[in-house]
Simulated scan of single mutants.
Amino acid sequence: MILRLDGQGWSLGSVEAGHCSAATKAAVKCALEVASEFDSTQIIVSMLGDFVVLEGFVRCRGDDELAVDVAASIVGSEHVHNRLICRGFPKRPS
């Protein structure tokens, strides 16, 4: 599911369905949880107007960019604020 926001926080194309910033926040949270490339358990998703704000911690460098990419796939890159802190631990071997 991809939701794009207009200036009022309503997702474009789904105003009739009643989607708003709460639905967008839930969509981003779910997408982060499904992403298997990184651990998103310490990421907090919030809304600030029509922006998605990602706060908290990620395990290693690059995971913050992956989280932003996931959120951007939902709302567009211009609507994502990255406030994630990298703890700097190395990636686990696959």
Rank of each mutant, 00 (worst) to 15 (best):
T41Y: 00
R59C: 00
L84K: 03
F38R: 00
Q42D: 14
V53P: 03
A31R: 14
G76V: 07
V15Y: 06
N82L: 04
H79L: 10
S73E: 13
L12T: 12
S77T: 12
D64L: 02
C30I: 06
L48P: 00
A72C: 03
E37V: 13
V45D: 03
F51Y: 14
V75E: 07
V53H: 01
S77E: 14
V53W: 01
V75F: 10
H19Q: 08
H19W: 08
A27K: 11
T41A: 11
E78H: 15
D6K: 10
K25I: 02
G7R: 11
K91S: 11
D69R: 15
V34A: 11
D50S: 13
S11C: 10
R92H: 05
A35Q: 13
V45M: 05
E16D: 10
D39R: 03
E55N: 13
R92P: 03
C30T: 11
P90F: 05
L66F: 03
I2C: 01
V53C: 05
S40A: 15
G9Q: 02
A67R: 07
H79N: 11
E65C: 01
R4D: 02
I74R: 04
P93Q: 05
T41F: 01
E33K: 13
H19A: 04
I74D: 05
M47K: 02
L3F: 12
S73D: 15
V75L: 03
F51S: 06
S36T: 15
S46F: 01
D39A: 08
A22W: 11
I43Y: 06
C86R: 07
I85T: 15
F57D: 09
H19F: 13
F51E: 05
A23H: 15
L84R: 03
K29V: 10
G88K: 06
M47G: 01
R83H: 14
K29I: 05
H81K: 14
D50I: 01
F38E: 04
E37I: 07
I43V: 14
I2S: 09
R87D: 09
N82V: 11
L66T: 15
D63Y: 09
E33I: 03
G88N: 08
D6R: 10
L48E: 12
R4A: 00
D50P: 05
V34S: 01
I44W: 05
R4K: 12
V70K: 07
D6N: 15
V52E: 07
E78W: 09
S46P: 02
K25N: 09
E37A: 12
K25Q: 11
H19N: 06
G56N: 10
I74W: 07
E78I: 14
H19M: 07
L5Q: 04
G88C: 07
D63F: 06
G56K: 00
T24M: 10
G56A: 07
L5G: 02
K29Q: 15
G56S: 04
C60M: 03
C60G: 10
G18Q: 04
A71D: 06
L3R: 13
L54V: 05
V75G: 01
S77N: 11
P90L: 10
S11M: 00
D69M: 12
S14F: 12
V34Y: 09
L12Y: 00
C86E: 15
S11L: 02
